[in-house]
């Protein structure tokens, strides 16, 4: 792998920073010498144990599936709603107060109500998590739609671009920063809310495992699952979101 000077330096900084965190953690666990703060070596051993038994792959896999479904639902639904609200003022006047209400609703309330109304099912968990993120995605995309450049819109109309061409080549690139923002914050929020939904009403997944570890006062288990999940999210950020962002922003770098 050929890393440029700046990229290589950035990677090195990240590795050094993570190592420093590991050292601090180790020192803290040695100093406190408590069951409530196992050191990185103990947690790594526990992580290895869970991976070897296949439990980690199973629980992590099902949680990631829920995250992906809820993320897609909230992103697609929130984007459509946000664009519609940004485009049509009358619609926005009707639904604006709904949006403010939903965006301020605690995640726990939505999850509990979804389980009561839809049953303790997989779809109830996914819908509840998606509903938690959907209003904020809609708000972001509504602002993005309001900020669309009217001159480019006029150009598209003057050159008789069809609706799809206009959306794909004129509107979507302008909405991309908002979509990326919604994706970033969406991923961060959704994976936290998924864990709550799993604790409350599922019998598998990382949230469920953390709940079991909590019952057994197994802090190493809690940290092992948390670290595994955090690593997956970091991987998604570094391997998927950031390269995608660089690719679509290459025109900005060209100046």
């Amino acid at each position: 792998m050929n890393l440029g000077g700046a990229a290589g330096e950035r990677l090195l900084s990240r590795i050094v920073s993570l190592c420093l965190l590991g050292v601090l953690w180790h020192v803290a666990s040695v100093v406190t010498h408590s069951r409530t703060l196992p050191g990185p070596v103990a947690v790594a051993a526990r992580l290895q144990e869970e991976i070897a038994s296949g439990a980690m792959a199973h629980h992590l896999g099902i949680t990631l599936f829920r995250v992906a479904c809820a993320f897609l639902l909230s992103l697609v639904g929130g984007s459509i709603l946000g664009i519609a609200l940004g485009r049509w003022g009358r619609l926005d006047a009707v639904f604006d107060s709904w949006l403010i209400g939903f965006v301020n609703l605690p995640a726990l309330v939505i999850i509990v109500l979804a389980y009561i109304w839809l049953g303790m099912t997989e779809s109830a968990a996914i819908i509840a998590v998606a509903l938690n993120k959907l209003p904020s995605t809609a708000i972001l995309l509504r602002e993005g739609t309001r900020a669309l450049d009217p001159q480019l819109n006029l150009m598209a109309r003057a050159f008789r671009f069809g609706p799809w061409t206009s959306f794909r080549h004129v509107a979507l690139p302008q909405l991309t920063p908002y979509l990326l923002g919604a994706s970033r914050s969406g991923l961060a929020l959704i994976w936290k809310v998924v864990l709550v939904a799993e604790i409350l009403g599922r019998s598998d997944g990382v949230g469920f495992q953390i709940e079991v570890c909590f019952q057994l006062f197994d802090v190493a288990g809690i940290l092992a699952y948390t670290i595994a999940f955090a690593l997956v999210v970091l991987g998604l950020e570094w391997l998927l979101l950031q390269p995608f962002e660089r690719r679509i922003n290459r025109w900005r770098l060209a100046s």
Binding site: Q151, L152, M155, A158, F159, T165, H169, P173, I248, W251
Partner: peptide, 24 residues
């Protein structure tokens, strides 16, 4: 069939010059 030249060039900044022209 009409075509415009606006006061502002109104080129799509995220498309190359050739792609901007191709869209028309």
């Amino acid at each position: 069939r009409t075509a415009w030249v606006f006061q502002e060039p109104s080129l799509l900044p995220w498309r190359s010059v050739a792609d901007n022209i191709a869209l028309a």
